[in-house]
């Protein structure tokens, strides 16, 4: 492919992220949170894309990696003095350990990656429905354990007192890292091999590609990115296990599908488009002024609209808004 076209494929999603971040600096302090949130969502959805988009295998389990990343970064970032208050039963070695912001994010990424490796070693043999159910099982187990196992976190409590370091800066850097890694991966030999298995798994194995290994590689990589995103997430707002469960799984999958699951551009566009809509509706649930009138939607409208949108896109345009294609500059035909 021509270099400028290739560059545009990477530059377009990055530019979108930067634009959102810049826009975020212009709005009020209270609205800024929505922008930061949407950037973290970009990181999560790109993480999802690295596996689902390239392999074509469905995963309902990625929020597990986000959750473990959040737990890792959260537990390690709460100031030692405040730990006993929110996490009275914390394991001894975690009680006295507190690390800085950046190390906590790196450890979150590491935790996500290691967890994905362990899960993937077993699960990457499955595909189709079995894979869907098994990854769902992983989500259930993670949610269940984090909820009740108080030696490694706050359990049912909300993760408060985590330094809120995730602002526009860190969130956009995180999103850009995710995009860069995803791009580098899909251009690499491994990315191309995995895409070959997505198009025609038997043919790919026939030419000597190990479907299992390629899927595992992508799974671990997406686990790393999801863990990182989870770290960013916990540094953004106080959360509990319920914020890292079905709703987040649904919303992030919706973003990926609405944008177009088979392209990085689709993942980023989907994450930002659904986020924008979602934040607008969230505001509207508290009453906003539009076109002179006040729009005051009942609580719960958000998920309805996002659900309708996702179902509509799936039914009318299953390849997503971008058609599942990478960004390309408008082409001028030569005479």
């Amino acid at each position: 492919m021509r270099r400028p076209a290739l560059l545009a494929q990477l530059a377009a999603p990055c530019a979108l992220v930067v634009a959102v971040a810049l826009l975020g600096t212009l709005v009020s302090r209270s609205s800024e949170g929505y922008f930061v949130d949407s950037l973290v969502k970009v990181a999560i959805v790109v993480a999802l894309y690295v596996f689902i988009g390239n392999s074509g295998v469905l995963s309902f389990g990625h929020v597990s990696f986000v959750a473990l990343g959040a737990w890792t970064a959260g537990v390690l970032s709460v100031p030692t003095a405040e730990k006993p208050a929110i996490m009275p039963n914390l394991a001894h070695f975690l009680r006295g350990t507190t690390v800085g912001n950046v190390p906590s994010l790196l450890l979150a990424a590491l935790a996500g990656g290691v967890f994905a490796l362990v899960v993937g070693l077993a699960l990457m043999r499955l595909s189709g429905l079995a894979a869907g159910i098994a990854t769902f099982g992983v989500l259930e187990i993670t949610h269940n354990v984090l909820r009740y196992y108080e030696k490694i976190g706050p359990g049912l409590n909300t993760f408060s007192s985590v330094p809120e370091t995730t602002g526009l800066w860190q969130a956009s850097i995180g999103a850009l890292i995710a995009i860069g890694v995803a791009f580098a991966y899909q251009r690499s030999r491994f990315g191309r091999m995995l895409r070959a298995t997505r198009e025609d798994a038997p043919a790919a194995s026939a030419v000597g590609i190990s479907v299992y290994r390629q899927r595992l590689g992508a799974f671990v990589l997406s686990g790393v990115l999801a863990g990182l995103a989870g770290g960013l997430y916990v540094h953004l707002l106080p959360m509990n296990t319920e914020s890292l469960y079905l709703d987040l799984t649904f919303v992030t999958l919706a973003m990926l599908v609405v944008g177009g699951a088979t392209s990085l551009w689709g993942a980023v566009v989907g994450a930002l488009a659904v986020s924008a809509l979602d934040s607008f509706l969230a505001q509207a649930e508290n009453g906003v002024k539009v076109f002179g009138g006040t729009l005051d939607l009942p609580a719960g409208t958000r998920l309805v609209v996002v659900g309708v949108l996702m179902a509509l896109v799936l039914i009318l345009r299953p390849a997503g808004l971008t058609g599942g294609r990478e960004f390309s500059l408008p082409r001028w035909r030569r005479p």
């Binding site: 429905l129 599908v257 009942p298």
Partner: peptide, 26 residues
């Protein structure tokens, strides 16, 4: 959805499940 792949159908009914649940919530 009849002509779509099973994966698309699974995600779509996942969306419908959420939609109906949110409608009930609303």
């Amino acid at each position: 959805l009849r002509t779509q792949s099973p994966a698309v159908m699974l995600v779509a009914t996942f969306a419908v499940a959420f939609l109906l649940q949110s409608v009930a919530l609303l």
